[in-house]
Design a protein around this nucleic acid. Structure first.
Lengths: 198, 198
DNA sequence: ACTATTATGCAACGATCAGTGCACATCGCA
DNA sequence: TGCGATGTGCACTGATCGTTGCATAATAGT
């Protein structure tokens, strides 16, 4: 019951996410969010309490979108070597649409709120850990399938290596680094799954 | 001539650098800078024109400090394999003193000004390129010394890989990632200089 | 028709923002 | 002693910040 909303909620949430993504938490004002969402500030506050609540929601939406786009294949139960090797190129290709934005989580980690606010920082670390788990799981499958040889200890390290490459690519793209540089980094990360004695 | 300064200039500049480093460009107010430098805002504006001028100076100071600490050995004419392998551990060790701050340049790349302001972005990319050059030069020396085998093309890629690891470590430390994770990333990057057929 | 509930628009709040005008202080030099 | 030049402290600007109060509008259930 009550008066119905005058706006599309999904569109509004995507707009808020994109605004924070582009300009960061501190760099995005309520006026910006009104423009990006098409929702009056009064309703924004009614729904989310304050700007921080709005931002936490935007982070959650970003995580969902990123997971749907980039982690979906990697987290599949039958994911293997192919999915591991596809992940970073997919990240780079996906960025062609939303260039120079990088990654909302990485960007936030660099902001003041990313260090100050425990909940915000925890969300970042948790999502990164989720990436580690996804990579490690796919790598274990690849080992089981006989596609690569790798110790359990090394699987953890390689998973972190792929995640580090992910983070670096996001940041370097945000800074405007040209695509070939990003591709080089992705290709180097892929070297980790070549056969070796380590 | 004129009235002498009532403050230590070096101390003031280090304070401004640290303030921006901790809280970012938008997250640092003039009041913060007054407190961090011990200089009244009037003199800050007299010297640097505006907040952006102050920030550009802080970036330059950060670059110098970073270069003195991390790039000095790597940029030495006789730098070789040892310097390449020491760089990232040195970065991690140096962070024990200034923890959870990451890297001013990386942090800035994630901010709004890092995308908007061409001069700021250019400083970031230029310094990163300088790191690539330093790594590549040391790697070439290592090849010439017979310590590693590597094609010219691959030297470029490996240099970028080390730089990407540097960037990732800065960002992950800023987010509060524990040190062993950072060490794993550094160790993985070091695998690049092991003998291989690529 | 009335009530409860939720959404919207407007106007304002105190706080803080970056930046400035101005009087005064303190120096070197004539 | 006076002058030019530079530094310092204070008060202040208009703009913008995040946030809120309040009147009103639009719905569902009784």
């Amino acid at each position: 019951m009550g008066r119905p909303r005058n706006y599309d909620e999904h569109h509004a949430r995507m707009g808020a996410m994109r605004a924070f993504w582009r300009s960061g938490y501190e760099g995005t004002s309520i006026v910006d969010l009104e423009a990006a969402t098409g929702v009056g500030r009064r309703q924004l506050y009614n729904e989310h309490g304050d700007k921080r609540g709005l931002f936490l929601r935007a982070m959650a939406d970003f995580e969902s979108a990123t997971a749907d786009l980039l982690l979906k294949d990697l987290e599949a139960p039958d994911a293997g070597l192919r999915e591991v090797l596809d992940a970073l190129p997919l990240l780079i290709r996906s960025g062609l649409r939303t260039n120079t934005l990088g990654c909302l989580l990485c960007n936030t980690a660099c902001e003041s709120i990313g260090v100050t606010d425990d909940e915000v920082r925890n969300r970042i670390l948790t999502f990164w850990h989720r990436m580690d788990v996804a990579y490690a799981s796919a790598l274990r499958n690849a080992v089981a399938a006989g596609d690569i040889r790798m110790t359990a200890r090394r699987i953890e390290r390689v998973a972190r290596r792929f995640r580090a490459a992910h983070v670096a690519i996001c940041l370097m793209r945000r800074a405007g680094e040209p695509e070939p540089v990003l591709i080089d980094v992705a290709r180097e990360a892929a070297e980790a799954v070549r056969d070796r004695e380590g």
